[in-house]
Design a protein around this nucleic acid. Structure first.
Length: 263
DNA sequence: ATGGTGGATGCTCCA
């Protein structure tokens, strides 16, 4: 089973790019974040035409939004709400073989890395805390779980273009990395991408729109992740980051990440 | 230190 995650930054203006992704990566299940569309306006027919007969969407007007599109039948979990908000950031599905797939869009956290003056950063930290607690309380590490999405945190030094220059930049601050680690420890989550691509190697999934030439400056960060619980570790078959997609137009600032799990 | 771009929305917010 091939699972692809992509922060699409508006699903409606990037349907052609999604068709290209589907052609090249051939995902069985596609998880999108930042769909930026309410459920009643989601382009269901386009995804049905691509072969995704099974769809679960959780969106709102203008912001956020997650969707699970699948060739394989699944039974629905429900949208989950965190931090007392209904802001469309967590959706999960139960796939055949007893695998439960979580699609996550963790808050970006604004610009100032201080929860006392920046409530978006406070929200992000609380969200990661809550999510880790929820995994620990509501699920077990012996369950077959996959968690994918835009986590908006780059944990390793090699997950950013300059560790030193990003220590004060939201996404790579020590407090975020620590909370990321605690969330990862909640179920002993395995980083499925680093399972195949060594942690010594620089690896990014996002490049800002604000760099004129993303490829030359290569100031990227690895914000998008795929995790599996320990029972699925031996089922992992491959992982890849579709770096070329950053050049597609009109492109997202994130690129797709695909993991193959024997199932 | 600053501003750079892009999407949705509607005279601005979010990333």
């Amino acid at each position: 089973m091939r699972i692809t995650t992509w922060n699409i930054n508006s699903v409606r203006i990037r349907l052609d790019l999604i068709r290209q992704l589907v052609k090249q990566a051939k995902p069985d299940v596609l998880c999108l974040q930042e769909t930026k569309v309410p459920n009643d306006l989601f382009p269901h027919q386009a995804f049905a035409d691509m072969g995704f007969a099974h769809r679960m969407v959780h969106g709102m007007k203008g912001y956020n939004g997650v969707a699970i599109l699948s060739r394989i039948p699944f039974s629905g979990g429900e949208p989950l709400h965190r931090c007392g908000k209904e802001d469309c950031r967590h959706l999960y599905a139960r796939l055949p073989g007893g695998i439960e797939l979580h699609n996550l869009y963790i808050p970006a956290g604004g610009d100032i890395p201080d929860p006392k003056v920046n409530e978006k950063f406070a929200h992000k930290l609380q969200f990661v805390d809550e999510l880790g607690d929820w995994f620990k309380d509501a699920r077990k590490k012996k369950q077959k779980l996959v968690a994918v999405g835009d986590f908006n945190i780059a944990p390793l030094e090699t997950d950013v273009w300059s560790h030193k220059q990003l220590l004060d930049v939201v996404s790579h601050t020590p407090i975020e990395v620590e909370k990321f680690g605690r969330m990862q420890a909640s179920l002993d989550w395995v980083d499925a991408v680093r399972h195949f691509i060594p942690p010594e190697e620089k690896l990014f999934t996002w490049w800002s729109y604000r760099n004129r030439d993303w490829k030359i400056s290569d100031r990227g960060r690895r914000l998008d992740h795929v995790w599996v619980t320990p029972v699925l570790k031996t089922s992992l078959r491959s992982a890849s980051v579709m770096r070329d997609a950053r050049d597609w137009t009109p492109g997202s600032d994130h690129v797709p990440v695909t993991v193959e799990v024997a199932a």
